[in-house]
C-alpha cells in the first residue's frame, strides 16, 4: 500500500502543507524535499504554513520542516492542527437520500410516460398504456395498472408501492415480471414490490 502524500496547496495566507496523520516526520521531510526539488524555484519566497492532521508537531519536528523548506528559499509560517472533514460513510445511502422526488398530482393516462432521475410519487392512478421509468422508487397513491420501472439504473433495492398494485408489467433494475394471463383475485390493500431471491415479489404492505 502506498503511503498518503503531503498536500501542498495555495491559500490566501500563502502555501499550506497538509500532513496526513499516517506519515512519520522523516517521510514528510523526504516527500517535501522531493516535491520542492521537482518544482525548483517556483515556490521561492512563499510563506509556508504547516498543517498537521490531528496532531501537534513537536518543536524538533517543526525545526526539521523549517530547515527543509528554507533550503528551497521558502519562509516558514505558522503551524496548526487540522481535523479532516469526515468522509461519507456509505456513499450509496447518501446518494439515495440526495435523490430527487417528482410529485405528480394527476392520473397518468395511456400513452403518457414519465421518465425521471429519482423517485416518482403519483397522487392519482397510472392507467394501462402509461409508463413510469425512474432511477429510484415508485409510489402510486391510487391504482397502478400501467408499466412501472423502478431502479432503472440498476438499483435492485428500488421498490414499487401502490394502493392497488395491478400493473401490466413491473420492472425493477434488470428484473421484469408481467401480470398473469389468467384473472387473479384483485388485491385488497396496498402492496409493495421488491426484488427478493432474484425475482420481483409482491407482498401486502404493512407499516411498522
Amino acid at each position: 500500500m502506498s503511503k498518503e502524500a503531503c498536500i501542498i496547496k495555495g491559500t490566501r495566507e500563502g502555501l499550506s502543507i497538509l500532513i496526513p496523520a499516517s506519515l512519520e516526520i522523516h517521510e514528510v521531510i523526504e516527500q517535501l524535499r522531493a516535491r520542492l526539488h521537482a518544482t525548483q524555484h517556483f515556490f521561492e519566497g512563499a510563506v509556508v504554513n504547516v498543517l498537521a492532521e490531528n496532531r501537534a508537531l513537536k518543536p524538533a519536528e517543526k525545526r526539521e520542516i523549517a530547515k527543509a523548506v528554507e533550503e528551497f528559499g521558502l519562509v516558514m509560517g505558522n503551524n496548526r492542527i487540522y481535523k479532516p472533514e469526515p468522509k461519507a460513510v456509505n456513499a450509496v445511502n447518501e446518494n439515495e437520500l440526495l435523490e430527487d422526488t417528482l410529485l405528480i398530482r394527476r392520473t397518468l393516462r395511456s400513452g403518457q410516460r414519465v421518465q425521471y432521475d429519482g423517485n416518482v410519487v403519483v397522487l392519482g392512478d397510472v392507467n394501462p398504456g402509461a409508463e413510469i421509468v425512474c432511477s429510484g422508487d415508485i409510489l402510486v397513491l391510487g391504482s397502478l395498472r400501467g408499466v412501472a420501472h423502478a431502479g432503472c439504473n440498476g438499483n435492485v433495492r428500488a421498490t414499487v408501492f401502490a394502493l392497488r398494485l395491478e400493473p401490466t408489467q413491473l420492472r425493477i433494475a434488470n428484473y421484469i415480471s408481467r401480470s398473469p394471463d389468467e384473472d387473479l383475485p384483485q388485491p385488497v390493500g396496498p402492496e409493495l414490490a421488491r426484488v427478493t431471491d432474484n425475482m420481483i415479489q409482491i407482498s401486502a404492505y404493512s407499516f411498522g
Binding site: G111, G129, T168, Q169, R178
Partner: peptide
C-alpha cells in the same frame, strides 16, 4: 403508433418490452 391495440386484442400487452 400512439394508439396501439393489436397487443391488447391478442392478449400480449403484458409482454411488451
Amino acid at each position: 403508433i400512439g394508439l396501439r391495440n393489436l397487443d391488447v386484442v391478442m392478449g400480449l400487452e403484458n409482454r411488451i418490452v
